[in-house]
Amino acid sequence: MARIDVKKTYKLYIGGQFPRSESGRSYVVNDAKGALQANASQASRKDARDAVVAARKAFGGWSGRTAYNRGQVVYRIAEVLEGRRDQFVAELRASEGVAGAKANAAVDAAIDRLVWYAGWADKITQVVGTANPVAGPYFNISSPEPTGVVAVVAPRSPLLGLVSVVAPVITTGNTCVVIASEPHPLTAITLGEVMATSDLPGGVVNVLTGSVAEIAPWLASHMDVNGLDLTGVEDADLATSLEVAAADNLKRVRRAPAAEPDWLAVPGTDRMTDWLETKTVWHPIGI
């Protein structure tokens, strides 16, 4: 008799823990063939609220770490992901219905993307920071700093797209609350397991699964969220209303792209600089 396998319960990832939605709700996630893949937690506004609290709590420590250390942690995520690649290949094949080669390529690219961003941690300051030759006896230097808590609506691409939007946010010292792709949420939770075992402090990345239309407005209007990435918002009217809500506390907003980007392309620095503030410090030079 074949062994009965143990199925995984997909919960949320908040503050380093894997709680169920406080609402007790879940929704059916089907695989590419339309068969039940799993029940995902259907996060509520209160889960979103808790996730923001967790992200804010983690911000001081994470942003205060050295860039070198953040780079090491992001690299560690790549290492752990590499070790669990088969699981991700299987999940992608099931949820997206893609061939093994394509799923493998996506996992490769996701790992490589993490490595790419890990290397940026201690370089972005040198690339976008400036020493300013002011016309007076002052030392004057501008350096980028993380903007704070960023809410991210992840794109459809379950792993590579997700990694491509989350890695730049955290590499630069921000913390985030991510709403996973609504049709492909499971990989996001599995990636949460990777992050939870990669020296990433709890709360730096928080993953919600559920309805974007239900959860995103709460994050967009949340007064303790500093940035809003609308990359995964496919409904233009929803995107506009989220941007309007974000104006309540002048969140930095990255608008949704016209079409899903080619995630295999080498990124620019814009996904990092979107979540960076320039801080300029002056000091007199005298004896």
Binding site: A135, G136, Y138, N226, T278, K279, V281, H283
Partner: peptide
Amino acid sequence: RAGVVWANTFNKFDPTSPFGGYKESGYGR
């Protein structure tokens, strides 16, 4: 958490020096 920090000086401006705020002080420099 501020876009410009003046240490031992204040209200200095220069075209080479970026100026702008965090949070509800706006965005961009």
